[in-house]
Amino acid sequence: MNPLIECEDVWKIYRVGDMEVHALRGLSLTIEQGEFVAIMGSSGSGKSTLMNILGCLDQPTKGRYRLNGIEAGNLKPDQLAGIRNQQIGFVFQSFNLIPRTSALENAQLPLFYRGLSLKEQRAQAAAALGRVGLQGREHHYPTQLSGGQQQRVAIARALVTSPSLLLADEPTGNLDTQSSQEIMKILETLNRDEGITIILVTHEVDVAAFAAREIVIKDGQVLSDRVTKERPTAIPVGG
């Protein structure tokens, strides 16, 4: 089986006026199905840039990125959108829920673009909200929810499509310690029980401690890459 993620000599170069910013400089990385990876590194080291490429929101300037064996560097915008919809879930630092729209409708959003019937959308979104402990809050608006609850809605939105990859860029950056722990426990459960591959960016050591592998990025390259926990021996089959 292919590794889920294969980066080979990935470069990302931004051009700002006459200046070139090398956000990624020949970064190579392989992540297997079912891993739980924490990416750390100082500000400006290129973590978000990497996450955008891994999430098919952006494409490398140079080098190859394969997701599930698919060469993502050559795809057109709508093909990338299709991959994001089918295989990837995003959790952002600032939650990014659609304002004045209920928790249920926010969680429905990826299914909306799959063209499912309204009934199926609702049922699956309600189930996803249940999995993050938000049953009974389906019709609350973002402004009626705490930060931790909003982030849980965002996680429900990310997992409603049963993605193979969940990307979280500083998911606890805007949360207090207790909410952070709750969110991380949810992610840990998703990884352990459902085999969803999770890659998260964080500056906090106790958040990174939930992951089984820690990659440190510096100046757009991998500085260190180590396993911090033995991976569970039995990954649920078909999970």
Binding site: D78, A81, R84, N96
Partner: peptide, 12 residues
């Protein structure tokens, strides 16, 4: 909002 919609898979 448009960015979010695109991120979760909205095509052009």
């Amino acid at each position: 909002e448009i960015g979010v919609r695109m991120a979760v898979g909205a095509k052009r």
